[in-house]
């Protein structure tokens, strides 16, 4: 009994250390975004202070930031919709075709996600430049789909595999063709997979920085790039950076809190079930 109690206390003490270390940066983003600039770096840090929304005000008073958020939204939603459509069709095919090479196709698609983006930034830059697509949301939608399609394929394949074939056969006997069966039976049953894939696609696109930096200018700039621009060596506007950061991290946090049980599957691409 006492041994157990001592053990539990030790476990909770270690947990407390872990949580403090891992949560402090997040706490700093939130608190600094509402901290008056003069006490931003005050030591010891002020835990109790009158929160100010001046940073948020500054952020949005500057009209383009709203536009940058719009850009982020358009790009993220566009890429999500595109990747989901194309990706889930491919996933369904991979899940249903019985062929010894199908595994290779699936792995090939997955590997497309693993290449370092920097390696293709140069060609993208040149290709989009000559196509007149630099600094447009379309360029980013296309680029992000290269990461989002493989993810969707891989996730949705798992969900389609779990839809019993007998249901599709029942529909076939009842008089439905493949497309109708897919639309009315298979897809609704894989709906949780669609939701999870959508969220992953959205968050990846929303968070992305490198391509957004390279391929956009003032027109199609996204929120992550905009936040970075508040950093300049002469005057770092920490308040605005933190306010912008907080806004950017909201979707990810909501995702973790609502569907963390899918995170494992999504992030490890199925290598951990």
């Amino acid at each position: 009994m006492t041994r157990n109690l001592r053990q539990n206390i030790l476990v909770y003490a270690l947990l407390a250390v872990v949580l403090i270390v891992f949560m402090t940066p997040i706490y700093l983003i939130v608190s600094s975004s509402v901290k008056p600039s003069p006490i931003m770096f005050q030591k010891p840090p002020a835990f109790l202070f009158t929160p100010t929304f001046e940073h948020y005000h500054d952020l949005f008073a500057m009209r383009p930031f709203t536009k940058f958020i719009w850009n982020s939204l358009i790009v993220a939603l566009g890429s999500t919709a595109f990747s989901l459509t194309i990706g889930s069709l491919a996933a369904y095919a991979i899940s249903r075709i019985r062929h010894k090479r199908m595994n290779d196709v699936a792995f090939w698609i997955l590997s497309m996600r693993m290449f370092p983006p920097i390696a293709v930034v140069v060609p993208y830059y040149i290709i989009f430049k000559s196509a007149g697509l630099l600094d447009t949301p379309l360029a980013l939608i296309i680029v992000y789909s290269t990461a989002n399609i493989p993810l969707t394929v891989w996730l949705m394949k798992g969900f389609f595999d779990e839809v019993p074939l007998a249901l599709e056969e029942a529909a076939a006997v009842d008089g439905y063709g493949l497309l109708a069966t897919f639309w009315y039976v298979t897809l609704p049953l894989a709906a949780p997979g669609l939701a999870v894939s959508a969220v992953f696609c959205f968050i990846f696109s929303w968070n992305e920085f490198l391509f957004a930096l390279m391929l956009t200018g003032s027109e199609a700039q996204t929120a992550t790039v905009a936040v970075m621009s508040f950093w300049s060596s002469d005057a770092v506007q920490w308040g605005r950076i933190m306010a912008g950061s907080f806004i950017i991290l909201i979707p990810g946090v909501i995702f973790v809190l609502t569907c963390q049980r899918w995170l494992v599957r999504g992030l490890t691409m199925g290598s951990v079930k």
Binding site: A166, E169, A170, A172, D174, L189
Partner: peptide, 20 residues
């Protein structure tokens, strides 16, 4: 002939009811 055109109805072993 495709299943749908055979005028048959089938009761599956695990029923195959559409869960949704």
């Amino acid at each position: 002939v495709a299943p749908k055109d055979r005028g048959v109805a089938m009761v599956f072993q695990n029923y195959a009811l559409y869960p949704h």
